[in-house]
Design a protein around this nucleic acid. Sequence first.
DNA 1: TGGAACATATTTGTAGAACAATCAAATGGA
DNA 2: TCCATTTGATTGTTCTACAAATATGTTCCA
Lengths: 244, 244
Amino acid sequence: MLKPSGQSVSTTSRRVFRGVMKDLEDGRMVPGQRLAETDLATRFGVGRNAVREAMQHLAARGVIDLSRHRSPTIRLLDPAETMEVLDVAEVMTALATRTAAERFDPPGHGDLLTSTMDMLAEADRIDEPGMFSRARRHFYRALLSIGGNRELQRLFPAIGMHIIYAQYQTRQLRGIRLKDYRTIIGVVARRDLAAAEQAGRAHVDTVRDIIRARLELQQTEECRCARTPIRPDFCHTTSSIRRP
Amino acid sequence: MLKPSGQSVSTTSRRVFRGVMKDLEDGRMVPGQRLAETDLATRFGVGRNAVREAMQHLAARGVIDLSRHRSPTIRLLDPAETMEVLDVAEVMTALATRTAAERFDPPGHGDLLTSTMDMLAEADRIDEPGMFSRARRHFYRALLSIGGNRELQRLFPAIGMHIIYAQYQTRQLRGIRLKDYRTIIGVVARRDLAAAEQAGRAHVDTVRDIIRARLELQQTEECRCARTPIRPDFCHTTSSIRRP
DNA sequence: TGGAACATATTTGTAGAACAATCAAATGGA
DNA sequence: TCCATTTGATTGTTCTACAAATATGTTCCA
């Protein structure tokens, strides 16, 4: 039920797809980075075809950019496009939270929410890199699952939030997210449609404000921190993935 | 400007992708139909690899369903999922119309709207099958172009409306769409944000009501018209595309 | 030294062969 | 008629091969 039909197939290209997504989530790949197909093939132990299929999937999902005779690059958002992504995320999140509140059914969905809550608490206590990402994903999957809208389940993960997560990763954002997620869980459990929609919208709005502030700060003082906006030519050669 | 970055590449798999989309739009392929990869390869004069890449792209876009060791099938919406698609379409369309109204700039966008208007009028007069589909696509592209939100330009065509167009094609719907599109163009040109958002929402709402009515009608009297809900096993064999 | 022009190496784009794994239909027996 | 087996067709996957384009490196000239 959590897996949309198209996702459940377990093929080789799927493995590459997931691998790249996971690498992006865990910070092993960063926006702007090039992905040479032979490198990926050896890295995941598959043929070039499988890699190319995965690239098509990733491109359709907005994770990478393709251009002829160039290595695919992980999408890098300029400030304007970052805001555009957030505008889309706002209405989609609002729909997700409202639908979840509308369809929330304690007997079926109760422990799903409590387990999500637990996972968020765990992520708050323990300070492990991948932990928070997993909790966040779990939260949204639970939300979408409760809502039961299959088209939303399909499209929501296609919003460019993955890129934003990778590009603007700060502790400040993480803390705010945790708080907002708890609020959302609360209003969904109360089945308060209006409050749920508002909470979803407000969350994205908060994230937007923080990112905007950071972008403006960054524009004035030209200091580039370790993890934020990486230039497209960050990796000068196409073979950008080092083998272990 | 009309083309998102990922779309502009012109490769062989891209040709297959476009070909399938066009076949769907023109009614040469219908929801539920199977797409054997060797058939597609010969039909488009390309290798199997290219077809498989295109299938990954189409699957990511929600145009086809993939399952292991089965020919891909064009997505077929049951009544519930049809409504779910429309729920997503509603908020996305509302965002599109509002953003267009917000960013509308007569000097730059004026003749884009008039040309769209002309095309819609043309489609209304002449009764050619592909004509209306082209006009509709032109309308939405213009809307998204005016709004300028690149993420929305990328995600909007990924909504399952293509399938709905193919599955619920009636003259009644066409007429209503034409009228609604003109209304939307009007309020966008007036830069009335609230009215634009409302018009977008109302349009999808109207479409939903009509489809719902048809589905209920269909449920009572079990008559299946020529073009509507085709069963998944419509094509009994996998080689469903006949060569000319 | 700086840069332009060329030559070479690397990478992508594409087709096709080959084979295993799996599914769907046809066949044949009870 | 119904079930089991076989057969045929289709997909999943890797490899090879080569053309086309890009990236890199080197040479040469001002």
